[in-house]
Design a protein around this nucleic acid. Structure first.
Length: 280
DNA sequence: AAAAAATTCAACCGCTTATTT
DNA sequence: AAAATAAGCGGTTGAATTTTT
């Protein structure tokens, strides 16, 4: 099928380009026998003419059995958006929260769907999903509150049968149920603010001054749009998207050891927690 | 119907970080 | 302790595919 093109020929002893089914088979068999790792010995032991680097990449991004094939779901997309807002282009870190997805896949997804300069239908769809998700959370919360209110009234009535006073004020100030609800609402409000900021960025690309991150400075914001040299960074009118401010967090979030995310209140992202996804 | 443009994504590269010798 | 090797990461590329004109 291939080989007739320049792509896929040998170079410096190593084959390059797309993998054939036979090559895949060899690699899979190697991993079955020897486990993951020691990629440089794949060539020695199997005769496969691929560099260790290439073998590792093929395994990690394509052959691994725990990979989830198929399209990114709306839920996954939400997670990607939230985590990218948190961590910027730390694709592997983001990937850790999406079982079965590779950093490469997420990176590709982000670039094709949300990269600046491509304000497309995709963004509109994402926006619509954001709004929908928000509405759902809102109504859910409302329902919860109503239910809690009813419970409370009931309890008050019961308490009122014995002692008519005191119970109400105590309830309001120290009941765990109430403070929990308040906390939840606080979280929701903060999330909504985040979403709004995000949407604002989506809708008003030129308004780059606002920043989600406490303590983030605008110093590097205008300087370079995430490092990519000026190939297609500009919108038709010459306006650039303001992502730089939002996404380049390396200076802000200094992960001290192994990608730990110091100082972030994870309750800001209830979506992730609801889905049982891990924070680092 | 076909040519052009846009999109997708697997695989590459160079660089950094971790591990081994 | 340091040099060598391996693994990991993020940016970029370009062939194949899909969509638009």
């Amino acid at each position: 099928m291939e080989g007739q093109f320049g792509w896929g020929r040998e170079e410096g002893g190593w084959r390059k380009g797309p993998w054939t089914a036979q090559e895949d088979k060899l690699l899979v068999e190697y991993v079955r026998q020897h486990g993951e790792g020691r990629w440089n010995s794949v060539a020695k032991l199997t005769g496969l003419k691929r560099s260790g680097k290439s073998c590792r990449l093929r395994w990690v991004n394509y052959l691994r059995p725990d990979l989830k094939r198929g399209k990114i779901t709306p839920q996954e997309e939400s997670v990607i958006l939230e985590l990218h807002a948190l961590w910027g282009n730390r694709w592997s870190t983001i990937a850790r929260s999406l079982p079965g997805r590779t950093d490469n896949e997420i990176k590709n997804y982000w670039r094709t769907h949300f990269k600046k300069g491509k304000p497309s239908k995709n963004i509109e769809r994402a926006r619509a999903r954001f709004l929908k998700q928000r509405r759902e959370m809102q109504s859910q919360l409302l329902l919860q509150q109503q239910q809690q209110g009813q419970d409370q009234q009931q309890r008050q009535r019961q308490a009122g049968d014995d002692h008519d006073d005191g119970a109400v004020t105590r309830e309001a100030s120290s009941s765990p149920a109430v403070s929990l609800a308040a906390k939840h609402e606080e979280d929701l409000q903060m999330l909504q603010q985040d979403m709004d900021d995000l949407l604002f960025q989506f809708c008003c690309p030129m308004a780059s001054s606002s920043c989600l991150l406490p303590g983030a400075t605008a110093t590097s914001a205008s300087a370079s749009e995430e490092g990519s040299s000026g190939d297609h960074p500009q919108l038709d009118g010459g306006a650039t998207w303001g992502w730089g401010t939002l996404w380049n967090l390396d200076d802000v979030v200094d992960d001290v050891d192994g990608g730990a995310c110091g100082g972030w209140d994870t309750s800001l992202f209830p979506l992730l927690q609801d889905q049982g996804l891990a924070f680092y």
